[in-house]
Amino acid sequence: MKVRMRMILHYLCKFILSIVFLLLVLLTTLRLTILSEKYMLKQFEKTGYFEKLSKTILDEMSNYIIQSGLDEEVLNNIYTTDMIEKDMHTIITSIYRNQDMNIDTTELKENLENNVAAYLEKNNIKVADQTSLDRFVDQIADVYQSKVSLSGNLNLVKGKLNKVITYVNIAVIALLITTILLSLFIKFYLKKEVFAIPFFTTAFLIFIGCYFFKNSININNIMILNKEISSFLTEILSKLLSRLNLIAIILMIIGIMETVILKIFKTKK
């Protein structure tokens, strides 16, 4: 009876440990990827987001050029990819640290005003209404600000993201403590090997989960906010799935190695 009870307890502990492992793997992966400021900034750079956004901003600005009576040449070099990168850094930092979000468009406005002045002089055009010109400059600056800050939509996640990161950190610590306690209990009280079954279970669940996710969600067609951010998210999601699959494979290998090493060690004893 006692042996049977120990056996039930053993499998129950392993089952709980499997769930704890799964949560630990998922939350740690999230914490090190989407919830990491450094990772996201690196990904923005790696996926060429700034270059893509630069083209989109120019495209959007050119919509206002047609109606302004000016030529597209006035938009030449009014902003640079480095400027976008710097502003995106400010935005991402402010989101992850819950700080105020400020995009300074003074330089862009100055560059645009200089270009417009040069264009007007070159074509001998006299401005009758300076207010129209000032409003045009403001409009172009607004396009830049709105595109870089994703029309202020990032403000929606600003306060929340900070809280989520705190909760995830707490959860990871709690799960780590639970893992240690359960492992010690299985190892020293139940006198059984600890990791193989939980690792295998976690790996199976990750494989099945990734397969289900890939087959039920059309990642490549997701459209959120704009094309650039959508393709960025698509790449991030694909990377996340590949990373999880890799973790599952590693867990499988560690599980097998633990069993093999323990068996060899036991036989030698």
Binding site: Y64, S68, G69, L70, V127, D129, S132, L133, D134, F136
Partner: peptide, 8 residues
């Protein structure tokens, strides 16, 4: 039509 800048 013939004014440069923003048109209101």
């Amino acid at each position: 039509v013939n004014v440069v800048g923003h048109k209101d």
